[in-house]
Computed example of a mutant assay.
Amino acid sequence: MKTFLDWPVVRQVRTGDWLGRGPAVTSAKTQHLTPRIADADHVARSVCPYCAVGCGQLVYAKDDKVIQIEGDPDSPISRGRLCPKGAASEQLVNAPNRQTTVLYRAPHATDWTPLGLAEVTDMIADRFVAARRDYWQSEDPDGNRLDRTMGIASLGGATLDVEENYLIKKLFTAAGAIQIENQARI
């Protein structure tokens, strides 16, 4: 049963919370709540995976499972703030339908086949080397030196940060590819 002492103005005077931002306006239910991160085993610093801005994230884990992802207040880029997609990235990690195995669909096949990561890596490397070899151009019809391949192209995504895009550009340029583009620039 509420009494006169439970009125918000009286609580403000009684607790010294003159602006009504602390204990005077905290309900009994709220006083017993604890943050989701209170029982986290450890915290890891990360970068949001969605765009090239590179907002800092704090990833809280308990029993090797992500329980919360928040903005990192020490990040000079985002200063603790995240956009709606970044704030919801915990759902990306813990989604029940998240694909965790590599699937491959062979040419003309109708079904996907799960493959091991080592097998897929070898398959990609073999195809990369074969495309470079099969489409290599040493010189043009006029005898001008080209040293390039037209069998490899790269389209980078906006979710990659500057360092990743730099390394991709170096890799493909070293392989002789000249068709290197980024989604963020198109």
Rank of each mutant, 00 (worst) to 15 (best):
N182R: 08
R81H: 11
A24S: 05
D39Y: 14
G116Y: 13
L117S: 15
C55D: 10
C48M: 02
I152C: 11
G157K: 03
A52D: 07
G156W: 03
V129M: 06
N182S: 13
G16Q: 01
G16W: 00
A131Q: 11
R98V: 07
T173C: 01
Q12N: 02
N97E: 14
R14S: 09
L103A: 08
A95D: 14
A95V: 00
Q137C: 04
L171V: 10
A44R: 13
G22E: 04
G176T: 02
T26E: 14
P141Y: 10
N94A: 12
D74T: 15
G22Q: 05
W7V: 02
Q99K: 09
T173R: 07
R145M: 06
A87Q: 04
V13W: 04
P49G: 00
S154W: 15
L5V: 03
L92P: 10
R127E: 05
R133A: 15
V93T: 03
P73M: 00
K169Q: 15
A106M: 06
Q31D: 07
D39W: 07
G151V: 12
R133Y: 08
Q31W: 05
K169V: 03
D140F: 14
K2D: 02
G116P: 09
V53G: 07
L33Y: 10
Y104N: 02
T149M: 08
A130N: 03
P114D: 11
A153P: 06
D161T: 10
A38W: 04
A131G: 05
R21C: 04
L19W: 06
D72M: 02
G86C: 01
G16Y: 00
E139D: 14
A130S: 06
V66L: 01
M150N: 13
N97C: 10
V120Y: 08
Q57E: 13
N144K: 14
N144H: 14
G80T: 10
V66H: 01
P35L: 13
P49A: 01
L33I: 14
T121F: 00
L103H: 05
D126Q: 13
W136R: 06
G80V: 11
D122S: 12
D39F: 11
D6M: 07
W18V: 13
F128V: 10
A28F: 01
V47H: 03
N97P: 04
D161C: 13
T159E: 09
R36F: 12
V25H: 12
L160E: 04
L58C: 05
A44N: 12
G143P: 11
D64T: 02
D72Y: 03
Q99T: 09
M1G: 12
A87N: 05
D41T: 04
Y50G: 14
A131M: 04
R79W: 05
V162F: 04
G116F: 07
A158K: 09
H32I: 10
D41K: 01
E164F: 01
